[in-house]
Amino acid sequence: MSQTTRKPLLLRTRGMAAEIGARLRVMIDEGELPPGARIDEKDLCVAFDVSKTPLREALKVLVSEGLVTHRQYIGYRVAPIDLADLNSTFELLHGLEAMAGELAQQRIGAAQVSAIAAKHRRVVECHEAGKRVEYFRLNQEIHQMIVDASDNPVLSTIYASLMSKVRRARGAANADTLRWAESMSEHEAILAALTDPAHKDLPQILRAHSENTAREVMAVLNRTWVETVSNSLSELPGVGAPG
């Protein structure tokens, strides 16, 4: 077979691997594949309707990015999250949320408040319909909109960068947490503070919301870490589950 005949097949394989990789990143970011979860190649091949070749090419890329790990006898797993680094990032985010709230109170315009309120209504609809993944996405968008309303581009850029670091952790906790209703109530308070010019507590409300979210995320991930260690040990040859 000539090289010109093989090349299109190679390109299609690479394109398929890139698409699979993109879908896996979303699954990891949104908690469908939580930290430490074993990646079942057979199940994913069926779900994506692909062979193992493009799937493994995608997994190799995710390993190089640090999102997935591979070990002999254990196979592929979603990479664990550095909890110490995550906690430090959350601490910084609490302060940025409060700063954004303080500046937004002074600078936010009516059109921005209206846009946030409209998105909040969609969040409520997702909550009532049990659409957790869509709720999570809209939730993140609202927070960024509030930060952007501070009219401080440096703050917006730093905040977006830090949120990208904790997105996977928040997605993992979002898939497992029972705090959803409480978070929804806190978002109602945030909107009330935004829509009432006389309301001066927005910085404190945003900071408390950030701290409550971080506390729940860390609790869920600590439980997940213990379960992951236990499962990993039980899968090693000659090692049973700890008693």
Rank of each mutant, 00 (worst) to 15 (best):
N222S: 15
M27N: 08
H70W: 10
V229N: 09
P35Y: 03
G21K: 14
L178Q: 15
L162M: 08
E182N: 03
V166N: 07
V154T: 13
A172W: 11
G238M: 08
T224G: 09
A160P: 01
A193E: 09
R6E: 14
H94G: 02
F90W: 15
L59S: 10
L93T: 02
I142G: 05
S64N: 15
I205K: 02
I146E: 05
S234T: 00
T157H: 09
S185W: 03
P8T: 00
E32W: 11
T5K: 06
K119C: 11
D43T: 00
L202A: 06
L11K: 14
Q204I: 06
V63P: 05
A219N: 12
V220K: 13
A208W: 04
R121A: 15
F90I: 07
A110I: 01
T53S: 13
T177V: 01
K165R: 15
D201L: 05
V166C: 06
N139T: 05
T177E: 08
C45K: 12
G95E: 09
A208G: 11
Q112M: 06
P153F: 02
M145W: 00
N139L: 10
P242C: 12
I74S: 14
L9G: 11
G95Q: 07
F48S: 13
M218G: 01
Q140E: 13
D176S: 10
Q3Y: 12
V50N: 07
S210Y: 04
M218H: 06
A172I: 06
L92P: 03
E128K: 11
L24M: 09
H199G: 01
D29P: 05
K52F: 14
G75L: 09
H199V: 01
W180L: 14
L191E: 04
Y73M: 13
L86Q: 03
